[in-house]
């Protein structure tokens, strides 16, 4: 799947490995509609707080990879999970590409293709079990009571049901 190394260690892309329909798949996904508007100006990457720290995450490059059809490399990557959802690129993009939503769309597709980041899987399991990211124990409600705060519910059957009904349960197994 990796391209052939050419001078200077740059990866050459092999067109045989590309899926030209990947971009249309992203367009159809919730939040992915505007991806083909990108004219690669780089405003997203310039203002990205994650990119400023780690150049594995480069929003302009990710969009380009999708448009080129590098489906497997994008979906299998660790970088799509690095968006901190700060929406800086989203608000500044001159083409209204809606990048934060595209990153969500890519992650959602990746999950369906079997690539799920363990951290998000864990979060979804907790939410599916307790209706919240955290388990509320009797201790917590006791502590809340001492502070004069009302108790909170420990589980939510209807939230657990939503997780099952929307197939999310299958995805996080």
């Amino acid at each position: 799947m990796e391209g052939i190394k050419i001078g200077g260690g740059v990866d050459m892309i092999n067109t045989k490995d590309l899926d030209p329909n990947f971009k249309y798949e992203v367009v159809k996904e919730h939040g992915g509609t505007n991806i083909m508007r990108c004219f690669a100006c780089g405003t997203c990457t310039a203002g990205c707080p994650v990119r400023a720290i780690d150049d594995r995450y480069n929003p302009r490059k990710i969009i380009r990879m999708v448009l080129l059809g590098m489906k497997e490399r994008v979906l299998k990557s660790d970088f799509i999970w690095l968006c901190s959802t700060c929406y800086t690129c989203y608000d500044r993009c001159p083409q209204d590409v809606r990048l934060s939503d595209i990153m969500t769309a890519l992650k959602n597709i990746a999950v369906r293709e079997g690539y799920i980041h363990p951290s998000f899987k864990e979060q979804a399991k907790l939410v599916g079990t307790f209706g919240r990211l955290y388990e509320v124990e009797d201790f917590d409600n006791k502590k809340r009571g001492k502070m004069g705060l009302p108790p909170v519910k420990k589980t939510f059957d209807d939230v657990t049901k939503i997780i099952k009904d929307t197939k999310l349960g299958e995805m996080i197994k």
Binding site: H30, G31, W81, D101, T104, A105, K107, N108, V111, I116, H117, F120, K121, Q123, A124, L126, V127, G131, R132, L133, P150, K153, F156, D158, V159, I162, I163, T166, L168, M171, I172
Partner: peptide, 27 residues
């Protein structure tokens, strides 16, 4: 006013399924 039914907003599951997150929020 405290409403007992309020649970997760949906944000933690959005990366896995934006649609499920939407159902959470709508709930």
């Amino acid at each position: 006013i405290d409403l007992e039914g309020f649970a997760c907003c949906g944000f933690p599951v959005k990366s896995i399924s934006a649609e499920t997150a939407m159902v959470f929020a709508a709930r």
